[in-house]
Design a protein around this nucleic acid. Structure first.
Lengths: 200, 200
DNA sequence: CCGGATGCAATGCATTCGCATTGTAAAAGA
DNA sequence: TCTTTTACAATGCGAATGCATTGCATCCGG
């Protein structure tokens, strides 16, 4: 059998290099040679793990989305016991309060989106909030409204409000990531929306 | 003096070619030679009007944003006399009801944004709604609320709601442009938001 | 201990790129 | 008519790219 190495570590390292290069020079500045140099390995190794440039970028995107999701999930998990409204606010704020690394990942995802909009297989990775998350959020909204003594307008209503919340929060997060909005300003906008949504 | 030609027509034609190529093959597939071929002219002409690739893309972006704005403005101007609520709905819907050409332009703008997020001079073109538009929208919201018999919560409130409206509408428009949302679905979301905003 | 499978390094190759350079045809003043 | 300026057209060049190929070192089952 062959030499035994940590394949996961190798791939992770290469993908890290892709992220760094893409954020620094733009996605156009990512080449096999530069990735190899940035990761401090030979170009042969890059080719060994990723037979083509496309697969390298594809995996880099997969891992970036995954990492962002993990950060959001971690933020949510760290709340513990709290009111539904607190949970809701924290969930949505997670997207606009990303740290430097999270911002890098979001920027990278944006760059890939811009490059491969015509590729349906790629855009599937950048899918909008899934059914599960929307239902979860809708329940939060209903509970938070109830806690404030406001009656909701039904399940369909809550689901659509949840959709609006995530769409807005994502857009605000993107604005922050590209520097067109301050984190504080985005948070204020989000808070305002939630205040009105939950009944003032 | 020299040969007399329609410079504007030349540039417009070249920029059109850039849009077509970028939407078809992605921004990475845009090269001086391909632009020349797509426009049906020689490569020398491209160089004559745009000394570098960067300037070509920059002008293409400028014109794309300008064209999208013009379409929105045209939609707004075509309303004529109507209730403030109608005007408001029409304005915001303009972003998600773009025709095929408008969608192409929006896609192109997205691609450029993804490529040059680190370039502040480029991102300035893709600026969020300006002060004037926000004030105009805030007034519309206040008027529409009044027409429904609801009192607003003050000017600051209206401005922030206007901000939210444009942010949401833009995000929905992007979702539609990249194919992650149907135009009807986006319109329904927007209508729902406006219904709740203006008081139900 | 050894043969084959594996992980990688190095290099070569055809293509494509942006841009510079050079040449030329046309048209408005002189 | 001659000159000068403009608007291209054509070609060339060095650099960079993705990918294929080749060679070698390593390590484990037999």
């Amino acid at each position: 059998m062959p030499k035994v190495v940590d394949h996961e570590a190798r791939r992770s390292r290469l993908v890290d290099a892709v992220w760094a290069l893409a954020v620094r020079d733009g996605l156009e500045g990512v080449s096999l040679r530069k990735v190899a140099a940035e990761a401090g390995v030979s170009m042969g190794q890059v080719q060994h793990y990723y037979p083509s440039m496309e697969e390298l970028v594809r995996d880099a995107l997969r891992r970036a989305v995954q990492a962002v999701d993990a950060r959001v999930a971690q933020t949510i998990g760290a709340i513990g016991a709290a009111t539904p409204e607190d949970v809701l606010r924290t969930c949505l704020r997670a997207l606009i309060g990303l740290d430097a690394e999270g911002t890098r990942l979001l920027r990278f995802s944006l760059a890939v989106l811009g490059r491969t909009m015509s590729d349906p297989e790629m855009t599937r990775v950048l899918a909008p909030p899934d059914e599960h998350l929307l239902s979860f959020t809708a329940d939060l909204i209903a509970a938070a409204r109830a806690a404030r003594g406001n009656a909701g307008d039904g399940e369909r209503d809550d689901r659509m409000e949840a959709d609006i919340c995530w769409t807005l929060a994502t857009a605000l997060g993107v604005d922050v990531a590209v520097g067109q909005r301050s984190a504080e300003g985005a948070a204020a906008v989000l808070d305002h929306h939630l205040d009105r949504l939950l009944g003032g």
